[in-house]
């Protein structure tokens, strides 16, 4: 038995090392995995096209804890081949947010920060350069070629809904070729 003790000790140590490594690797991979499942299965949208979400109701189960006062527009971006120009009319509490494949929220712009209305933002891949001919667009380099854009427009009250939905429909996205 005594000669087994060192083996048991070393094996336990190896179990711990493997457990720690697996733990960290899995934790690091969870955000990208969940984003991938969300994009490919839950959303299943064509890339680079806005999908205008209807107001949140008790049937809204795409994402957990949606804000009922927010009107969402979602877009799966893919700038691997070309930059993507996004244009959106703003409302009083309006935000565009960009999420990389590892879920990092790498870009936000609010209506109070926007210099123009409508707002223009061009998303480009790392390694690309882009000179906006209009001089109005904000150019943003993305950390991952694929990810999600989300425009949030706060609905201050139900009476504002038609105006908000109309502004939402003016949001556009086009690849710059």
């Amino acid at each position: 038995m005594k000669k087994w003790i060192p083996w048991i000790g070393w094996t336990l140590l190896a179990v711990i090392v493997v457990a720690v490594v697996v733990n960290v690797v899995v934790a690091v991979s969870i955000p990208t995995t969940i984003m991938g499942v969300t994009i490919n299965k839950k959303f299943n949208f064509p890339s680079n096209q806005w999908v205008f979400q209807p107001p949140i109701t008790d049937n809204s189960t795409d994402v957990v804890r949606p804000a009922p006062d927010d009107i969402y527009s979602l877009l799966v971006y893919d700038v691997s081949q070309h930059p993507l120009r996004v244009t959106s009319a703003t409302s009083e509490y309006w935000t565009i947010s960009a999420f990389a494949m590892n879920t990092d929220n790498f870009f936000n712009l609010t209506s109070s920060q926007a210099k123009t209305n409508p707002v223009e933002v061009v998303f480009i891949s790392k390694g690309m350069t882009y000179q906006d001919p209009t001089g109005k667009a904000q150019v943003v380099t993305v950390p991952s070629d694929k990810g999600i854009l989300m425009i949030t427009m706060v609905l201050p009250n139900q009476a504002a809904l038609p105006g908000i939905l109309q502004a939402q429909k003016q949001t556009t996205a086009e690849l710059v070729k």
Binding site: I30, P31, I34, R65, S97, F99, T103, N105, M150
Partner: peptide, 12 residues
């Protein structure tokens, strides 16, 4: 990040 991805995806 893993926790947020599971419990509040797309948290700003």
């Amino acid at each position: 990040k893993a926790w947020v991805a599971e419990n509040g995806l797309m948290a700003v």
